[in-house]
Design a protein around this nucleic acid. Structure first.
Lengths: 332, 332
DNA sequence: ATGAAAGCGCTAACAC
DNA sequence: GTGTTAGCGCTTTCAT
């Protein structure tokens, strides 16, 4: 025979299914005596309610979803993701809400994944890696699925939004470099499609003034190296490079060294995201910590709140911190 | 009105629910004409089958589960996990199978999570971080849930098992160090409860002979630093330390340097797992790459195979590789 | 090739 | 305080 059902528990306890259901949910008063019998019977049979059945009846999956459009390879070397997930889970776990992860490679696969979620696989989604005028926002709005957007979304939306101020630490960093005599400061950005890449690049431009030393990378070590090579070949090469993540920064740093340049004396280098190893490199890599764990917690809390029927709210977290280390130490 | 159901699509196409269902599943011949009408109607209404309903009817969730008992903090700084997930997803995504992630903090929470999965949240699980005589194995056996064990399980089990040979690269590494004149080689292991920690420590002992220089860490940077401090205070301090992961190795390395020791000349250092940054440190960190991506793929494939009714199979992957870098370069 | 109807295992009115 | 009875939205016999 198959797994026990609520019916089995009911007959074992000599009550009806409704009573069993309520004994567990507490949604109506049950006498202590029968409650105890029900619990005992359930224990005895090792019964746990079937989640699909419950989801079908309540229209609640007790799960939230995250759809990743990133290439699995990039996911694998990403420092943001595991910490973010850990933060999300730290609020989901105590409430026994599950996290449904789906990776999609194509736009249509991504759309199907969101549709499946809206259709009952999960009760809401956290949207990462926001693009300018992201198509997912109207889609989710149309589907009527609660969602929390991570990062700034410029268009109209009725969704909760968890933002951070990425511009401030970049300004702070550039100001630091300027104050220490750097005049040629370059920036290797992330893909400009991402709002966060654009914000960081924008902040850079606000201080530096022109795009001559701006290069667009894609967050991979490879692009970090290649663009560093390009920048260092310039006749009037930069004395400092600010990268949009630590992976690119480290690849660039080691490439510069392979050319015989000393860091920070010949070239100052800074990253973004503060990978957990960055403090341990030598020289230590200056970076911006963004507390992905906290952002995960807050995003999950907001989503749960919205799913429960609360009105969406937006917050701007104060959680980016410039970590100055030796890779940008003052030049002598 | 709520989301469209299969009934809405059926009436829009002028057929019955059964026909709609079969038009999509292909489980019975449908005339091209009606099929086209059905597809059009579904498209028009933006209909996607409800997963809980389908799961209830078919007893298949179209999802697999992973339950993490790790502390969210450790998860966050783990290099294995994201790459492993990426590998898993690369086989799930094309088949539109979802991944359900649950983090549990307590043993009972962990058990509930597995029970919920067995009860329909997912069709099978991948079991990570195997312990000696892991209680989860008999539990899952009792629940009758397909499972794939990652790593060696010594007891009896009818589950598929994806193993790697962790001992070989450790032997190779120690032999390399011995050949280069190191006589005092220490090991900072992971928690001995884990089978993989034990295997690595065992391999170390097979070459080194005694436990004098063996210390048990917990994979955190902090323990890497503390145990390194302890080892370096020994009257006859080690000339080489092999760590059970890169995080501990890097923390140890930078601690040693802070003491004025040169790496590798005064102290050789090696890690395990080959974090993506390790090749970029200076000196580059010698480590053992374990291809978590591939292990994720294989584990997922096996699980899907078992869920489909195949007989469980075990494989030993040949995917560990010693990456010799400057942190263990020959002493002059 | 298609329709009708009976569940899948639960919850939620509605009775008493 | 507890039982009865409909569904929730699918899939899947069994008919036709």
């Amino acid at each position: 025979m198959g797994r026990p059902t609520i019916g089995d528990v009911a007959s074992a306890a000599g009550v009806t299914k409704a009573t069993v259901s309520h004994a567990f949910s507490g949604k109506r008063p049950i006498s202590e005596a029968t409650k105890a019998r029900v619990i005992a019977a359930a224990e005895e049979l090792n019964w746990v309610p079937s989640s699909p059945a419950r989801a079908l009846a309540t229209r609640r999956a007790n799960a939230i979803g995250i759809v990743l459009a990133r290439d699995p390879e990039i996911l694998a070397s990403d420092t943001f993701f595991p910490a973010f997930i850990a933060g999300v889970e730290s609020v989901l776990a105590p409430r026994e809400v599950a996290l449904v992860l789906q990776v999609a490679r194509t736009r249509s696969g991504e759309e199907r994944a969101y549709r499946a979620i809206a259709q009952g696989r999960a009760d809401g989604v956290i949207v990462l890696d926001l693009h300018q005028d992201d198509w997912r926002v109207p889609l989710l709005q149309g589907l009527g699925t609660p969602a929390v957007l991570l990062g700034a979304y410029d268009g109209q939306s009725s969704f909760s939004c968890v933002r951070t101020d990425d511009a401030a630490p970049v300004h702070e960093l550039i100001d630091h470099l300027l104050a220490h005599g750097h005049t040629r400061i370059a920036h290797v950005s992330g893909p400009m499609g991402y709002v966060h890449s654009r914000v960081r690049a924008q902040a850079y431009l606000e201080r530096v003034g022109d795009e001559e030393l701006l290069r667009q990378g894609d967050f991979t070590a490879r692009s970090g190296r290649d663009l560093t090579a390009e920048l260092l070949q310039l006749p009037d090469r930069p004395s400092a490079i600010v990268y949009a993540n630590d992976t690119m920064a480290i690849a660039g740093l080691s490439y510069a060294r392979s050319l015989g340049l000393r860091v920070p004396d010949d070239l100052a280098v800074a990253g973004f995201d503060d990978d957990h190893l960055s403090a341990h490199l030598s020289p230590g890599l200056t970076s911006v910590s963004t507390d992905p764990h906290r952002r995960g917690e807050v995003a999950a809390e907001h989503l749960l709140h919205d799913i429960a029927g609360g009105t969406p709210r937006s917050v701007t977290l104060d959680c980016t911190r410039l970590r100055l280390r030796d890779s940008t130490a003052s030049r002598r």
